[in-house]
Amino acid sequence: MNIFRFAGDMTHLASVLVLLLKIHTIKSCAGISLKTQELYALVFATRYLDLFTDYISLYNTLMKLIFLGSSFSIVWYIRYHKIVRRSYDKDQDTFRHYFLVLPCLLLALLINEKFTFREVMWTFSLYLEAVAILPQLVLLQRTRNIDNLTGQYVFLLGAYRALYILNWIYRYFTEPHYVHWITWISGLVQTLLYADFFYYYFQSWKNNVKLELPA
């Protein structure tokens, strides 16, 4: 464990907590894409298959449980909670996220480090996570006034993977034979998808104006 990865995990945790805070306290999911949340639930479900078979550390197991629990409960809240679901804008959240799942699965079957079920599922989760934010970014462009919590959520979600990139660079230079091209390229693509969001988020913070993405 290095400071970059720990900071990344904490940033990821913070993004989840911000979202749970928003949904649980003000009982609203305005501006939040259910599709991105469903994709993330699938990402964690396919990435943490070794949750019960391999024990790495208490930290590792705890964080996996938090990410799995939070992502599935957020999907439940938006789909079934009688108050929260009313604020879900299904007419705007129209990204065909199923069109993301299949290509990622096919790609994972073609390009992976080892052709085993667990390895292919793990690779699938990496590819899917790289594109999981797309429905949310599309929804943000359609949502005129983005509330602070939603903006913070997306920012933290993007920042965590950027910190992971620093972690991979650090591990590459400090650990012999630490080479994971699939992880690195997926993480880089994922972070680059946030590039324009980061730009507008920074501009709104610098000029102290409401965050708005150009249509």
Partner: peptide
């Protein structure tokens, strides 16, 4: 070898 389980990163 490159790929190994369990993966130590989240």
């Amino acid at each position: 070898s490159q790929s190994k389980f369990p993966k130590d990163e989240l």
